[in-house]
Amino acid sequence: MKEELSKIEELSKEYENIDISDIKMLMQKFFTKLRNRLENYVGDYPTFIEPVYLEDNVKIGDDVLIGPNVYIGANSEIQDYVEISNTIIFENVKVGQNFKLENCIVAKNSSFNFNNLNMKNSVLFGVAESKDELKTKDF
């Protein structure tokens, strides 16, 4: 599982050089190996549809639906009313309120400081204060 994850992380590092076909294949492989890890999140009781794997110190807001097939890296924050499925979020990421992410990858240290976004089949990067500032690459 970690092997695919580090390959995906490497591939999604640089906005200009993403090999989408490799990422899709690796994601599929990664999700077949994904198992639950839910014991160390911070927050109330969100809805989890397994498999969901949370690294340490993930913060989750109210009325959040996570899964199936979701990995969230350490120290990331998911705010209220968010829905995430078939998605990999790397470490130290902030996702604003009412985001809906389906089949996405969010690159390490990304921070989306705004609310309301519906994204499918996309890699998301960087620090964005609004939807217009968001850097994405669709697949």
């Binding site: 989890f48 397994e50 899964g67 199936p68 078939n86």
Partner: peptide, 23 residues
């Protein structure tokens, strides 16, 4: 088996099941 933890919801709904079935 697949476990759904509903958190504070008191019943499963069709969306939960649909999310599983489509995968």
């Amino acid at each position: 088996t697949i476990q759904i933890n509903t958190g504070r919801e008191c019943a499963l709904n069709a969306y939960h099941i649909h999310q599983i079935i489509k995968n």
